[in-house]
Amino acid sequence: MHAPSEHALESLQSGMAAALLAADPAGQALPEALFTGAHAGAVGLRVHRNTVLGALSNALRLSFTAVDRLVGEDFFDRMAIDYARARPPRAPQLDEYGVGFAAHINGFPGTESLPYLAELAQFEWQLAEAARARAAREAGPVLQLDDGVRLRFAAPLWLHAARYPVARLRDAILAEDTVTLAAIAAPGPADPAPTNPAPAGTAGFHYAIWRTSEGVNVRSLSARSAGFLAAVYAGATAIEALAASGDADSAQVLGEEILPAGFVQVELPPGA
């Protein structure tokens, strides 16, 4: 914004913007004398306030489907409106607006019984980012193996780590699988159980998320596979990537977890 501002109009617009986003609309009310016509200005302002906040809530709802389902529509709107007031968007492409939502709802009052909520939101944001990406397998890294075999990896691909089993949690919420949800909410004695969180401050669950022209894919990974993939996407050679997996029997990483995954294509040498 470089144009010289027009004072009266700028003042009106900044005042109206503040009134529309205010947590206490009465405290930020614009003078009724500003308005004329069949309805009071407050009526029109209420329409615009509902449109603005409703549009922002819905923009978030599109990305945070399971969070919305888990907490319910009304509570989701409370979190979304609180976020809108704290961090109103700065650009019209609302696809990018939810980037700080997971951090914002971490510890949000009323979510104490859902310690995994922010991690679930962060996972959903990663899925949303993947959904908006353009599939470009040809741009993915390629590993050259000793026997001429080439491994071509998907692009784009993201590695995601969480303390809670967020992919399983999300699936359970969307499928209304109350048994799994209860298991995640109240970890059992078996450790590690597939639904138990990792110790605080650690990442017990790793995922690969990748885009194809057909859709977004998610695969659970072991920590060693996650290390291997991180190295591959950072440009490592096959030997370097296997070393980065931190596994004593490094070939096992390829054989058991990487090769069967949908994010890698095996290309045989000519004549093989």
């Binding site: 144009a3 029109g44 603005v52 700065r90 609302l94």
Partner: peptide
């Protein structure tokens, strides 16, 4: 209409006062 003020984007088509000043602004933009 307008939707940006104070650096914030409000996802709505907010009305303008139809004044000479506003006409100058919109024509410029």
């Amino acid at each position: 209409s307008w939707s940006v003020a104070s650096g914030h984007y409000l996802p709505d088509l907010l009305p303008l006062p139809y004044t000479e000043e506003a006409l100058r602004v919109v024509a410029r933009n």
